[in-house]
Design a protein around this nucleic acid. Structure first.
Lengths: 162, 162
DNA sequence: GCAATATCGTTGCAAATGCAACTACTGTCA
DNA sequence: TGACAGTAGTTGCATTTGCAACGATATTGC
């Protein structure tokens, strides 16, 4: 009987395991993105993310970026520092709270942002070109629900990091 | 006009961007997994993956594990070294090709594998508990197709790393 | 008004990662 | 057979990451 269990195995295939598939899919897509676009502008993925969030909610503080992107605050801090160095972001002190720096695009930053956004959307379209519009919509919403659920589970036993 | 473009923005929201959602979902789920199970057995994610692949295809060489898991070969090499150190894996020289080491579970390795697999499946079930059976199936297959497509795009401009 | 506490962002540090160079072994072709 | 090219796996190194400790500013409670 123990013998039998050993022989037949568990019918567990890593390739079919959801966390594994998710991880491979995310890596592949991020990599394609980094290779084709981010790299060309000298942006890392975290830097591009910061630029993107500032793009639709400016001015914004580092802390708010952390909340919205689920990145570690050190990661955001370093990305912001890199973008400031290269004059893609401006930082103003908030007179109401001097700990909180308000971030906006510089002219150059906005130019890059406006150049990358259409390309990012084009890549997204390419990656999902085999899916119907309905399937794309569905994939997005399934991922959304997964994120919610995983966050809940994660929050049960610890804080909620990147 | 340029003014107007600036004002209205691009209707681009990072949160709705597929590569971003994928990355967040993958991180959240991996983290939940690492926290709850892998950590308890002193396993890193790459080590657990190796243990899992050996579980359903043993004996197997490191190279084959690389092919099946899409992990970098250095990552696999280090995971294997860690597992050998702790006696969770056995390594035999293949007399037909002495470069290729054949890997199998040790008794201890198999025990851990058999303990983790049901827990891993339970976590997968928990993370997807809000989805119907049909939705779960669909999510898996959509991810699969995404991986295929992203691999193709990625392969166009470079090798195919982790 | 000021001590104690909390929040924002930065930095130090150890661990994980990806790439490329390397060693060891195998197969091929002359 | 013996040089050459190719493959399997390991290691070195620079970069990235996550966590925790920290300095600076804000807020709270007395």
């Amino acid at each position: 009987m123990a013998e039998l269990l050993q022989e037949q195995g568990h019918l567990f295939r890593l390739e079919d395991f959801l966390p594994y598939r998710l991880s491979v899919a995310a890596n592949r897509v991020s990599r394609a993105f980094a290779r084709r676009y981010a790299q060309e502008f000298g942006l890392t993925i975290p830097e591009w993310r910061v630029l993107a969030v500032v793009g639709d909610s400016s001015p914004i503080s580092a802390g708010e970026i952390v909340l919205r992107t689920a990145m570690d605050k050190a990661k955001v801090s370093r990305a912001v520092a890199g973008l400031l160095d290269r004059d893609l972001l401006r930082r103003a002190v908030n007179p109401l709270d001097q700990r909180r720096h308000m971030l906006t695009h510089s002219r150059k930053g906005r130019q890059i942002y406006e150049t990358i956004v259409p390309r990012a959307l084009a890549l997204e379209a390419e990656v999902t070109q085999e899916l119907s519009a309905e399937e794309r919509r569905l994939l997005g919403s399934l991922l959304q629900r997964l994120i919610r659920q995983a966050s809940l589970l994660d929050a049960d036993e610890g804080p909620d990091p990147e």
